[in-house]
Design a binder for these strands. Structure first.
Lengths: 122, 122
DNA sequence: CCTGATGTTATATTATAGATATAACATCAG
DNA sequence: CTGATGTTATATCTATAATATAACATCAGG
C-alpha cells in the first residue's frame, strides 16, 4: 500500500491517510480482506508519528471500512449500513450540489462527473 | 436571512455560516444582489462573536459568493471561475464517489441523489 | 461638518484539536 | 518465552477556533 502525505496541505495527516485508504478500497487497489501495514510500519514509512496513523485506522474502523484485530492489524472489511451510509453521502452531496448550482454548473455536468469517477478502476 | 448555529456540532461556527449562506444562495432563499446582515448584526442575532461572522463572510468573498463593500456590507454576487470551480467540485466528488463505491451504492443511486438536490427550490 | 454604521486591523486570552514523544500494557501467533 | 500487534496513558508543542476589547478608515445621510 502506498500512502503519500502532503505536508504542506491544510488537511490533517490522519484525514489524508483515511481518504487515501477509502479511495484505494473504492478503486480496487486495496482488496477486501487485504491487510494494511501496521501503525508502526506505516508511520515510519511516511515519517510521521504512530499515533497519527492509529487515529486514521481507528476512524476507518469507526466508519466501517476496516476491521482491526489486536495482533493481526487492520484489514479491509467494509461494513454496509444502508440507511446511515446513504444519509451521510446524501448530506455531503447536498452542499456539493449547492456549490455547483451557485457556480452555474448544471445537473448534466455533475452527472458527467459522477460517471467519470465511477468509470475508473475496479 | 436566517442562520442557525448548532453549538454542539464539531463543525466550526464560521463554516456552518458559510455553508448555510451557500445553501441559501443555491436554493433561492438568498437572491443575487441581496444584502447579508452586517457582521455585528448577525453576530448578535445568533449570539456569537463578530469576528467569527467576519471570518465566514471573508471566506465567502474569497470563494466568490459575495462581494463586500466597506460600508454597505456584503451582498450576494457569485463570481464564476469555470475551471477552478469545476476542478474543486470534481475533486470533492471523487472522494464522495469513493465512499459510495465502498459502501455498495451504485451509480444510479448517486444520480438520483443529485437529481433530488437539483429539484429543490429556485 | 458631524454622526453613525460599515468592514477592517490589531492584540490578547482561552479552549480545543492535531501531531509528536515516551512509556507501558494486554494479547497471542509462532 | 519472544516479538509484533493495537491500545492506553501522559506530557508537550503548535495551530486553529472563538472570544473580548479597542481602534481605525470610509462615507452615506442628516
Amino acid at each position: 500500500m502506498t500512502i503519500e502525505i502532503n505536508f504542506n496541505s491544510e488537511e490533517a495527516y490522519y484525514m489524508q491517510i483515511r481518504n487515501q485508504v477509502i479511495s484505494q478500497i473504492a478503486y480496487g487497489e486495496l482488496k477486501k480482506g487485504e491487510s494494511l501495514p501496521s501503525v508502526r510500519q506505516l508511520a515510519e514509512e511516511i515519517g510521521i508519528n504512530m499515533h497519527t496513523v492509529n487515529k486514521a485506522y481507528s476512524l476507518l474502523r469507526q466508519e466501517g471500512y476496516v476491521k482491526i484485530d489486536r495482533r493481526r492489524g487492520a484489514m479491509v472489511d467494509v461494513e454496509y449500513r444502508q440507511d446511515a451510509d446513504l444519509k451521510e453521502i446524501s448530506d455531503e452531496m447536498y452542499l456539493l450540489v449547492a456549490k455547483a448550482r451557485c457556480k452555474g454548473i448544471d445537473k448534466d455536468r455533475v452527472h458527467k462527473m459522477v460517471d467519470e469517477h465511477y468509470a475508473k478502476g475496479n
